[in-house]
Design a protein around this nucleic acid. Sequence first.
DNA 1: TCCGCTCGGATACCGTTAGTATCTGACCGT
DNA 2: ACGGTCAGATACTAACGGTATCCGAGCGGA
Lengths: 198, 198
Amino acid sequence: MSIRAVRQAQTRESLIATARTLFLDDGYAATSLDRVAVEAGFSKGAVYSNFKSKEELGLAVLDQIHGEMVVEVVSALAAVTTYEDSLGAFEGWLKLRLGQPRWTALEVEFAAVVRTSPFVATELAARHRQIRDAIAAMLLDLQARTGMRLAVPADQVALVLLSIGIGLGAQRSLDPTLDVHAFTDTIRSLLLPPPSAG
Amino acid sequence: MSIRAVRQAQTRESLIATARTLFLDDGYAATSLDRVAVEAGFSKGAVYSNFKSKEELGLAVLDQIHGEMVVEVVSALAAVTTYEDSLGAFEGWLKLRLGQPRWTALEVEFAAVVRTSPFVATELAARHRQIRDAIAAMLLDLQARTGMRLAVPADQVALVLLSIGIGLGAQRSLDPTLDVHAFTDTIRSLLLPPPSAG
DNA sequence: TCCGCTCGGATACCGTTAGTATCTGACCGT
DNA sequence: ACGGTCAGATACTAACGGTATCCGAGCGGA
């Protein structure tokens, strides 16, 4: 790798790191590219020779965060061997999301950009599909290992679980006083064979 | 009411109606106040003497849409007498949301504004609480009428149901090919006493 | 070692937008 | 009828994302 390439990679990483901090602290829309550039020690020109738009920079930040979440989730799922365990893993994932309200806030903010940017739309859709597939694969694997049968297709269950995560995160970012602990209990009660249901 | 007041009310309504069309067709962020004003037959000055910001105009549009949804939901709930019915009502609500993807898209876009506007944040939070309370009240009423007992508090169930609606809507706006019909079946299977669960 | 080209990054600029300041004239109370 | 008020028009500003252009350090070939 040439010196130039190394330097550019460093610049890129520096910009992403700075953007991440600012996007999470102040929000995506409220952070100007000028500020990102200056605070990283560069000028706006550096941004535009590393990213073709603000959206692409935002996506790079989101990629980084998403990657860190995946690492957490995968290690949590490695320990799953029973249905009960899988509920625990799901709760863990929820707590991870809810424990990082700023991540959720950034996702919400970015989801809005979809409306004006087909590029962001396809990228985000792909990422969601990826998460759903991962959850579905985990469920299938779980069925294979334990002999448990789900009443509905695994990919549909994955869709429901992800929806719950997104929806709850969105509400939590509006109202930080929402009772999260009680929520995971509720999920457990709803998804476990209910003791009595009418 | 004075002539002036009547005229202003008409102007306000006209601005909201035009903004609603443009926000739904082209998106909130992509619609300038200038365009709203001109297309309604006024100038931007009219906007700012009726709304203190673009956000307030957006909130007015959202109020209108939200009101129409509430009307639908309330009438659907009026027919509920059994647990089975209530699932049907929930499905109806989901279908209503999913049948108006542009409403959801606008909600998503607007949720992003929360980050930069405490005003919008409190307003949206209040609205969500309102919906949750309505669902919870319906569930309590249902329990009273049918003798059915939920395994978890009604307000928690309401939170789960609303989360599902929000999360699914968000994913649907990213990927319009998501199978909605199968989804409602899944919800039904998950919330009904499962036939066999491990 | 030199030299011309390449290209990452700096500088200067543009168009658009939300929001503000100021003005104007039709309606209001008296 | 008359002076004050206020809805709405006009003119402006600041800030932003994005583009055009420029500069100079590093690159490959001789």
